[in-house]
Design a protein around this nucleic acid. Structure first.
Lengths: 193, 193
DNA sequence: ACAATTTGGAACCAATCGGTACAATACACG
DNA sequence: CGTGTATTGTACCGATTGGTTCCAAATTGT
């Protein structure tokens, strides 16, 4: 009936995610995105309406990929001790930096930026962060060391660890010395032990 | 000899700080700044060279005001227990939110933004965060509960608490539920107790 | 009074921003 | 093979970005 789309939508969103991840929402210009996604203005606006809509789709994608990966790690029953899973999450954040990835967490970056004055973006971001939080809580429930805590206390501890996670990933983006990051992760381990 | 400056430079910087604090570096436009500072383009560029230079001055000002206030709280020997001082710092961050201040920490916001791809800004930001970190470490040294730790362990714990602080203030900006913030602070208290 | 300087303000700049209009293009189906 | 149709590329849009330049008015010390 008509000319088919020459690009894969998911792939395009995934490419856009990389651009937003490095530059942030307001820092990523249309040319940046077009370049990274490998398509032209017309195609982008036809397929994704506008920049903000694209960003919301990207956040969804990030939630479905990066956040979901973290959550399933936190739910991985093949590691019986929940605190071990949590430490694996924090350690992997540290290892990303040693591998040269200083971009931090897309969600955490968006959480700090001026884009948070937009209600829709705010909603998606805090939903994503809450998903992380819930994952941490699940892992805590599978931790023998925290079995005697009250549900409320465990809930609060999950909140604290979420803040810890956000702080760690923000520090990574801020080019804080790698030793400091290592120390922070190590101390989380000591605290949970 | 010549006409003196009709505005107070420090006051102007302080006003600029408010604008950057709410909008972030790239989010604050020239009109925003001129409006908030109450002066015109000509005066601003004569006095502060350009936007980035102004922002660096603002960061210095923030370090001399907000960060220094936090540090002197952390050094306040009238509160003998260092952990109490640290908890006061975290609690005050929480109380800022209950008072309706959702702007978070200027340094932490700058740490997450695309402005971190600028070396000069990066340097000033991480210097400020390190100052905070050192303050926390001093407080820890004045804590009986942490007197038996090794210097290295205490250092690492300070790093962790810095990440915690950044995360907390970022969550405040991200409009995370106030209960979650309260829980996070409470858990820090439990952890340090 | 005079020289020095800063003021507010407007005009102006090139560059870039996000977004749109539209003609050329390339495909799927009858 | 055509023809309808959605996609594509590009030229273009007005608005805004940070930054400059000019100038008359204002305010000081000498």
């Amino acid at each position: 009936m008509a000319r088919p789309r020459s690009f894969d939508t998911d792939q395009a969103i995934s490419n856009a995610m990389q651009v937003f991840w490095t530059h942030g929402y307001e820092g990523a210009s249309l040319p940046d995105l077009l370049d990274g996604m490998g398509l032209t203005r017309g195609s982008l606006y036809k397929a994704f309406t506008d920049k903000k809509t694209l960003f919301l789709k990207v956040l969804d994608h990030y939630e479905g990929a990066a956040v979901q990966a973290a959550v399933s790690l936190l739910n991985d029953t093949s590691i019986s001790d929940g605190t071990e899973r949590i430490m694996k999450l924090f350690t992997s954040s540290y290892l990303a930096v040693t591998d040269g990835d200083r971009r931090g967490c897309l969600l955490c970056t968006a959480a700090a930026g001026p884009s948070m004055y937009d209600d829709e973006i705010t909603a998606v971001v805090s939903r994503g962060l809450n998903t992380m939080r819930d994952g941490i809580e699940v892992a805590l429930e599978a931790s023998p060391k925290h079995a005697d805590m009250s549900k409320a206390e465990r809930h609060a501890l999950a909140d604290m660890l979420t803040a810890q996670y956000i702080g760690l990933r923000t520090m990574a983006r801020a080019r804080i010395d790698i030793e400091t990051l290592r120390n922070a992760v190590r101390s989380v381990g000591v605290m949970l032990a």
